[in-house]
Amino acid sequence: MRTVGILTAALMAGPVLAGAAAPAAAKAPATATPSPAPSGSGGTAGPTEAGTGFRTATAFRPGQKATAAASTGDYLYWVLPADAGQQVTVRASVTLPEPALRHGTATWQLDVYDGLRRRQACAYGTQTRAVAKEAGAAELSCTLRTVRAGAEPWANDPLPGSYYVRLTVVGLPQDDLGLPVRAQVEADVKDVGGAVAVDATLAEPLVPGIAGASREQRAARAPEDGWAGGWWSDRWIWTAAGGVLAALAGVFGYTLTRGSGRPGGSRPAA
């Protein structure tokens, strides 16, 4: 009966822990990361211009298609929000001038910077592409590392806040400078969390101010549902589940040990 009581208490620990986590989970909609519409053919229309620097970057949201008409050699800047636990993939497409107007190969590059203007490395993707004179478009992509809720001051980890997208040509014949091009940029966001979640949090997201920005422009630099943060993450659920399993394993081992020591149990041969 004593063993049965221990087992019953251990089994009841799971619902109790889940109940303790429920209030935090119930608050999730207020601080949860957004679930934007997927980009691609179903992406919604976004801004139709681009900035020429960090301070004038045009804001857009994941799931939107941002476009701009420009000249070859221009630096094009956009900015989008990314929150903790998200993995961002940025894609860019450049429609090139007619081959008869061009004089050789052109190399285009897509760079992504965080709110501190630190260039972020791409986990994978084609960040730089050289296109032949006969090509009609240049396609580029960059998938960032998962955004972390906190990091050491010396680390270059992606943190919640603004992410700047810069698109430009980095190599081409001199005579091709100034030719008209049309650029399109879009971003997909995937909520990862789980194994990469951490319990740290920033005091404020890395969102630099914009000189002369309107209220709508400032709001566009934050996720639609606000910034996530605080002590709660889904790792607490896995921690609680692991504690329950460890308790059950301990009780089971104790039961086996007690059973082997009772009269009638297994005894060593004489």
Score class of each variant (00 low, 15 high):
S260F: 04
A68Y: 02
P15V: 02
S214E: 10
A151H: 03
G243N: 06
D157R: 12
A68L: 03
R118Q: 13
F252H: 07
A69W: 03
M1F: 11
P158E: 05
D157C: 04
Q64V: 04
E224S: 12
Y113W: 11
A30C: 11
T8F: 13
G150Q: 07
D188I: 06
D234E: 12
G209S: 09
T48V: 15
K133L: 15
T105F: 13
A246L: 06
G226S: 07
A149P: 02
L172S: 13
S266A: 14
P23D: 05
P62A: 09
A82H: 01
G104F: 13
R118I: 13
L206N: 06
R2T: 04
E139A: 13
T58C: 09
L7Q: 04
A155S: 15
A211I: 11
T3N: 08
T48W: 11
S41V: 15
L179W: 03
V244C: 00
A123L: 15
G161E: 02
P23F: 09
A82Y: 01
D176M: 09
R182C: 00
R215W: 12
P160N: 01
A59Y: 08
L179G: 00
A37D: 14
T58E: 15
S41Y: 13
P81E: 02
W227R: 04
L7S: 03
S162D: 14
A246W: 01
A240R: 05
W232P: 09
A66P: 00
A92S: 10
T143E: 05
W108L: 07
E134V: 14
A69K: 13
A132K: 14
L140E: 02
G85D: 06
L17C: 08
W227L: 04
E98R: 12
P38M: 12
T52E: 12
L140K: 05
G229V: 07
M12P: 03
Q127P: 04
G230D: 09
W108V: 08
L245H: 00
G243C: 11
V251F: 00
W154P: 07
R262H: 00
T56F: 14
Q184M: 13
G226F: 08
A241P: 01
E204K: 10
W238Q: 09
Q87I: 06
Q127F: 05
Q87W: 04
T95L: 10
